[in-house]
């Protein structure tokens, strides 16, 4: 029997292996991953599999699905191909989702990190600003911003990012407040590490897991917000987004419901995939949950 404590335990498998093991334990998360991959594939192959501009006339107006194999999911009232719209719409929706989420997370992380790390008046000022944003309902603020900046897709994306940063900011702040008093932060300071390095290289990586999980929620919400804008005819008319398609399909909802239903299903599945993905990430990244 030996009591020496210098023998090291056998090495653990690499991090990504552990991550995948924990992730795949959640069946729903696997479904989410499959759906997500499907949407990504649709977005990537939009120009290859279904050639042609989704806004061009592809056949007779209001051809029902599964009738003409040139337009397998039918056409809308202007004769535009629904399948092509769904494929190109995936591209737009993903693009908006990713970029808007990045904008929201970057603003949120910077504000939350500064507020949480420094506390005091910095925290007071930044949190009052955050609260000011939080008191205005998201969608109202979004409508206002789009009304001011115009309906170009870049501005819409930016506006969605601007209305979504408050929740991640609060989250990052809370994480920072609990992490900044941990001894490893003192240890780094004692080594002479600068404030910026402490914030971004010591604390932030530890605060990241809940933010990554929350990013999936923001992504889903961004897609919904863009669709809602398009539904109100405030979207960018130069792109076939799912929201645009539903908005236009509304006019023929009784005679040709598929025009609105098909892009609607695409939105539901995409948003579902993000929230399932988020749940799986939560299981995989949450350090308290072992095995």
């Amino acid at each position: 029997m030996t009591l020496a404590d210098t023998e090291i335990a056998p090495p653990e498998p690499p991090r990504y292996v552990m991550f995948w093991r924990r992730y795949k334990r959640n069946r729903a998360a696997l479904l989410g991953l499959v759906l997500f991959v499907l949407v990504v594939v649709m977005a990537l192959t939009a120009g290859i599999i279904d050639p042609g501009d989704p806004l061009r006339r592809a056949g007779d107006p209001l051809t029902p699905p599964f009738v003409n194999w040139a337009t397998p999911l039918g056409t809308d009232q202007l004769g535009r191909d629904v399948l092509s719209g769904v494929f190109y719409g995936a591209r737009i929706s993903l693009l908006i989702g990713v970029v808007a989420t990045l904008v929201a997370i970057v603003i949120g992380v910077v504000i939350g990190a500064l507020a949480g790390h420094f506390g005091g008046w910095v925290d007071d000022v930044l949190m009052r600003i955050t609260e000011a944003f939080q008191t205005i309902p998201n969608f109202v603020l979004l409508l206002t911003l789009v009304a001011i900046m115009g309906s170009k897709i870049e501005w819409i994306t930016l506006a969605i990012g601007i209305v979504s940063w408050t929740a991640p900011a609060r989250m990052v702040r809370a994480e920072f407040m609990s992490l900044r008093n941990r001894e490893f932060v003192d240890a780094a300071r004692n080594l002479g590490v600068s404030n910026t390095s402490i914030i971004f290289r010591e604390i932030l990586p530890n605060a990241l897991p809940p933010i990554v999980v929350y990013a999936s929620v923001i992504m889903a919400l961004s897609i919904l917000m863009e669709s809602a804008l398009a539904f109100l005819a405030l979207g960018d008319p130069n792109y076939a987004s799912w929201g645009n398609m539903i908005g236009q399909g509304r006019a023929v909802l009784r005679s040709a419901p598929y025009c609105a239903v098909i892009p609607g299903i695409a939105i539901i599945l995409t948003v579902l995939s993000f929230s399932l993905l988020g749940e799986g990430l939560n299981d995989a990244l949450n350090p308290r949950q072992k095995k």
């Binding site: 941990r182 003192d186 240890a187 780094a188």
Partner: peptide, 10 residues
Amino acid sequence: FQDPMASLNP
């Protein structure tokens, strides 16, 4: 430091 777990960045 006192707590060897808390003082090493995980």
